[in-house]
């Protein structure tokens, strides 16, 4: 990818950043690199977004490139379609996961289908940013994980970041992608000081549509993404004290899925646990389980086990700790797999 324009006189090339700040700098780099990149959404301009991900962008790039829109999700995404087919690269922020549903028709009926409908005569290079997942003490509509709906729809790309380095690069890669990308951001990790990481803005990033093994192990494989990656890494650290080494794979790309590293790992470990906040029924975790049994049938020592949110509407804040997969549930699933 093109190197973003950075002012090297004042900005060090390696900075210790949170995920939120990395996204902010990634957006900034994309806007500097391409004047056709437009940021639009609710409260993204003057305020800089309710999560401050677009902080300072309107001040620096102007109101014509960072648009505060009314509460009008279908109108926002539909407007972005019109912009995209006329040469712009709109980046829409959906303020909270559950607010994407008013835009569902535009996303699945227009964004996903225009390219096939016109046989490639037009691209729809839209990025739809979605802060997702629970753990912020909010309620339904503000804590959901709707990624499977979109991964289900041919014509869309769906990706999610779990760390600051990926956040910086993946948002830029998504904006440069000529296909529409749903970009899911783990909102409870946005400002986590513990997850600050060294982001080298001169590095060469990995391709966008690749999963990554983030911890090696031989006892069992864990496939996960987004906010659950940290949970699984913590579980792997705890398991090590019991002499188990867990291989953790951060899927990063949900459509297309890049399951090659998962197959390779499962052929070695014989066991797979899939961890998502999204409920399991007819979901990405179902898809992963189906594909792994298809590709690794003779290697599996136990059925694929899924640790997910439950198949209920997202609970009130006081109950969400019971809903979200945590370290204990992940370790319990590993034990059940080993006991099979």
């Amino acid at each position: 990818m093109a190197t973003p324009v950075m002012d090297t006189n004042t900005t060090p090339t390696v900075q210790k950043l949170t995920i939120g700040k990395s996204l902010n700098l990634g957006l900034r780099a994309a806007m500097e690199a391409d004047p056709k990149v437009i940021v639009m959404g609710e409260d993204v301009g003057k305020l800089g977004g309710v999560f401050r991900i677009t902080d300072g962008l309107q001040k620096d790039f102007g109101e014509h490139r960072v648009l505060d829109t009314p509460l009008s999700e279908s109108g926002i995404v539909g407007t972005a379609v019109g912009l995209a087919v006329r040469g712009f690269r709109p980046v829409c922020e959906i303020q909270f996961d559950g607010f994407i549903f008013p835009a569902f028709d535009q996303i699945v009926s227009q964004v996903a289908k225009l390219r096939t409908r016109t046989q490639g005569r037009v691209n729809v290079p839209i990025v739809i940013r979605v802060p997702y997942g629970g753990g912020i003490g909010a309620v339904e509509h503000h804590s959901e994980s709707p990624e499977s709906y979109f991964a289900h729809t041919a014509g869309l790309r769906v990706v999610t970041c779990s760390n600051a380095v990926d956040a910086y690069w993946m948002i830029q890669q998504a904006i440069q992608c000529d296909d529409p990308v749903l970009f899911f951001e783990p909102k409870r990790l946005y400002h986590s000081g513990n997850l600050k990481a060294d982001v080298d803005t001169t590095a060469t990033p990995e391709p966008l549509f690749q999963s990554r093994t983030v911890r090696q192990g031989t006892t069992a494989t864990i496939a996960t993404y987004g906010p659950s990656v940290k949970v699984c890494l913590d579980a792997a650290t705890a398991a090590e004290e019991e002499g188990k080494t867990l291989e953790v794979i951060d899927l990063r790309t949900l459509s297309p899925l890049d399951l090659g590293p998962v197959y390779e790992s499962v052929r070695r470990t014989g066991r797979l646990v899939v961890v998502t906040e999204a409920p399991s029924e007819s979901s990405l975790s179902s898809e992963i389980a189906a594909k792994v049994q298809q590709e690794c049938f003779y290697s599996l020592e136990a059925p694929v086990i899924r640790v997910t949110g439950f198949d209920v509407p997202y609970p009130p804040a006081k109950l969400e700790e019971h809903f979200l997969p945590d370290l204990d549930r992940v370790l319990d699933a590993v034990d059940r797999s080993l006991a099979w």
């Binding site: 279908s74 539909g78 407007t79 019109g82 912009l83 087919v85 028709d105 535009q106 009926s109 227009q110």
Partner: peptide, 19 residues
């Protein structure tokens, strides 16, 4: 483009006008 979802073409027109 013609558009089979009733009303769905309207915001696309708005975006094209903005462009």
């Amino acid at each position: 483009g013609a558009n089979a979802i009733v009303g769905a073409n309207a915001p696309i027109t708005v975006g094209a006008a903005w462009a």
